[in-house]
């Protein structure tokens, strides 16, 4: 029962925060991807960096139980699936989590996106065996691999170095990129006419 309570608290906080950072607004996602407004890109990079710093700091100090980590398998389908997701992400301005959150915020196109998503997930359920037969789901780079070796886990490491140290450095790198990215990379108040 306590796990259900945690699901309500953490899930609720996640949905609330997605709306507060602007991720339920597809204008931000589309304009992150067409590089005209990097607000959400900076938000996401800072979030990943912050979470990495806290997680690996917590692992080093013993605050975080390494058993709570959950690293996913690497295979070619991760890249191909990422490409498919990226296509739809750009067209709609929604991903699975933000689509649900945006639908909850009252956006009708997000509700339609979620229906399409349910159909797409069902489509994958029906074609899973065919996808598996292509070999796209065969593990690469050791499967559930992390960049460095993380104590207390059995994840294979890509590099023979301290995973905690790499985690802290990765976190700092993400925060630094968020910090130094400009608000926009393409276009400007006046450059749109010039570019056309």
């Amino acid at each position: 029962m306590s796990s259900i309570l945690l699901a309500i608290v953490i899930g609720g906080a996640f949905g609330f925060t997605l709306d507060r950072v602007g991720a339920t607004n597809p204008n931000f996602i589309i304009r992150m991807l067409n590089l005209t407004n990097l607000h959400l890109m900076r938000t996401i990079l800072l979030a990943i960096g912050t979470a990495a710093l806290l997680t690996f700091g917590g692992l080093l100090t013993g605050l975080v139980d390494p058993g709570h980590l959950d690293v996913k398998d690497a295979y070619m389908g991760v890249f191909v699936g990422g490409i498919l997701l990226g296509l739809g992400f750009a067209v709609a301005g929604y991903c699975p989590g933000t689509g649900l959150a945006a639908a909850a915020s009252g956006r009708y196109d997000a509700m339609v996106f979620v229906l399409g998503g349910l159909a797409g997930a069902f489509g994958y359920m029906l074609t899973y065996e065919n996808v598996k037969a292509t070999g796209l789901l065969d593990h690469i780079l050791g499967g559930k691999a992390t960049l460095g070796t993380i104590a207390g886990t059995e994840y294979p490491a890509l590099l023979g170095m301290s995973g905690e140290l790499i985690g802290v450095v990765t976190g700092i790198a993400f925060i630094a990129i968020a910090w130094f990215l400009p608000d926009r990379l393409l276009g400007g108040k006046d450059s749109r006419v010039a570019a056309e």
Binding site: V80, G81, G82, I83, L84, L85, G86, L87, G88, F89, V91, A92, Y94, C95, P96, G99, V112, F113, V114, L115, G116, G117, L118, A119, G120, A121, G123, Y124, M125
Partner: peptide, 10 residues
């Protein structure tokens, strides 16, 4: 887009 996003995500 929803179809492609969730197919890809799975």
């Amino acid at each position: 887009a929803g179809f492609v996003v969730l197919y890809g995500a799975r």
